[in-house]
Write a protein that binds this DNA or RNA. Structure first.
Lengths: 151, 151
DNA sequence: ATCATAAAAGATACCTGGTCTCATTAAGAG
DNA sequence: CTCTTAATGAGACCAGGTATCTTTTATGAT
């Protein structure tokens, strides 16, 4: 398990290196921490876990990891933007509002639908942002148990 | 034209009053200004136009106008959140990345599609956020003219 | 018309996200 | 091992946004 995590961190760094960025000790530290996150997080969360790093460095690393496709940004229901590990390429998230976990939404024909709809509004589509909120399988299960218990 | 604008501002205030909020002079000023905006705007934009109002008051008014359904928040492509006049109820925006104008996206069966897709991921859907980016009719026209001219 | 009271405003401090500059340090190519 | 360039850290700065506290003001009751 620990080995797994370190492997992931190394993988993240490799991604940077492959794109011509240096592997520095702050970046190694950041990679280590984000590889350990199981849900979306903020710059501040990172800072708490890496108090020795400069503020600017945190933000620069985040930006870099987003640019290189290691991280993506997720929009929370209240409008806050958080970061999370990204499984490359364009995708959407099913965000659990209960536990903060997220699943990727794949094989969704929303692109096509949007294309049609925009065109019918005289709109030349160039991009979109979609986030989906709800309860993941395990949270909706415990939710129902709680309801039963309350009766 | 001027009369129209004032009428809209009054309408916004009425919405507040109907929901039990007082009609104060700062709120009248804010209503006046937002009734005049033709695209999305930030708190800072508002502050520039209303330098005599306290900062907190600006934010409080914005929040209030959002809560009462007068304003809605729009997510820009870069993650910035702006405000714009809302035509009540749940809807999405077609945001022109060129001129900043926006159209409402109506009669889109995305809800249904999302419902199905989430269910197939064991996800109990509770909400979503969608923004669509592109070029509005008039901007894509002038874009093509520019291209032609450049040749 | 006045008055009480609750709501709202303004000032201010604070927190977070995020960028910029500038001087110093360190990665890694040769 | 050295040189160059990228990256860091400190710090100032700006915007969004909230909390607290004191003063003002809108409105309902008299």
């Amino acid at each position: 398990m620990r080995k797994r995590v370190n492997a992931l961190a190394e993988q993240l760094l490799e991604t940077l290196e492959q794109q011509g960025y240096r592997s520095t000790s702050p970046r190694r530290a950041v990679a280590q921490v984000i590889a350990n996150q199981d849900k979306h997080f903020t710059a501040e969360n990172l800072r708490e876990q890496l108090p020795s790093l400069g503020r600017a460095t945190i933000f620069r690393s985040l930006k870099l990891f987003v640019e290189t496709g290691v991280l993506c940004r997720v929009l929370l229901e209240d409008g806050d933007l958080h970061y999370q590990l990204s499984h490359r390429g364009h995708h959407h998230h099913l965000l659990c509002v209960e536990c903060g976990s997220s699943q990727d939404l794949l094989g969704c024909d929303i692109e096509e639908l949007l294309q049609q709809t925009s065109a019918s509004h005289g709109f030349e589509l160039s991009g979109h942002w979609l986030e989906v909120y709800g309860r993941c399988r395990s949270c909706s299960k415990s939710e129902s148990s709680a309801e039963l218990a309350a009766v």
